[in-house]
Amino acid sequence: MIDAVGLHKVYRLKKRRVTALNGVDLRVEPGEIYGVVGQSGAGKSTLLRTVNLLERPDAGTVRVAGEDLTSLRGAGLRSARRRIGMVHQHFALLASRTVAGNVAFPLEVAGAGRAERRARVGELLELVGLADKARAHPSQLSGGQKQRVGIARALASRPDVLLSDEATSALDPATTDSILALLRRLRDELGLTILLITHEMDVIKRICDSAAIMEEGEFRESGRVLDLIGTPGSLLARSLFPLPDRGGPDTVVVTYPRSYDEPLMSELTRRFDVDVNILGGGVEQVAGQSVGRLIVDLRGARRAQALSYLAEHGLLVEEAGQ
């Protein structure tokens, strides 16, 4: 749905040049929730703003739903943008308008008639659970409610794609949960493709099918979240499951990249007569699967066989000692 190739962007300031994008390739499949995570200043916002050409890349092309946006200008670009919704960290609502007026804005811009606007606004507010707030002003709403208005507004022109720039970063944990649940529901119900950026690993864990880790204008790794977790040396796995930094020569890190019904660890001690001592780790719901990562000391004569047994069952085993 989104296909960006070879994106470069350099900001030229008075004294210095800032390379915000340094050869980024991004591919988001239809109906997917794709998360880009990284520290502040990594270039995430620049990447997102390049996808709807708010920022024109110095090099590279952006295709959304098959259309090459980088070749568009003026009216063509504006109409392409109407097929891409955007949600902002600080909501970016018009203080001069009511909730209904804010949601109606993109419809006015697109030239929809009064009756059509009214019907669509009602529908959208219903969808995000704010039907009773139509006449309120943004200043009378909580952060979570404001973001719901922002989402309703972004969906007004029936976009295929939703871009979200840190949509939950200004919200408290409980509100973040409800907004993330709303985004997932919208994907499920409307078949929306969502590209979101965040600096919170939690967001990736909760709702993303695919993810990329961004640093200094580049993708360090990218792909399906579960695939990445099952990849040796994965930065994503390490960030999602921080493990204590200890261990001797017998220490291994064991990653469960999906849910397992069998009790693998007790099976291990029974079959191979090894001692298993868990030093740390965790199990979490990621992309609908129970995924875990453990750091364990594994000792015994048949240690090597035990490790291959785990690997045969699809677990990822990495020696942590050396």
Binding site: N52, L54, L77, R78, S79, A80, R81, R82, I84, M86, H88, H90, A92, L93, L94, A95, S96, R97, F105, P106, E108, V109, A110, R153, S157, L163
Partner: peptide, 29 residues
């Protein structure tokens, strides 16, 4: 006027003259 609001209007495919009339002036009223 909040730059974010102007940017949001751009992202919604708004013409510049409309941004003046429907965003900047009402917001600055």
């Amino acid at each position: 006027v909040d730059r974010g609001v102007v940017e949001a209007a751009h992202a919604m495919g708004t013409r510049r003259i409309t941004i003046v009339g429907k965003v900047m002036l009402p917001e600055a009223l």
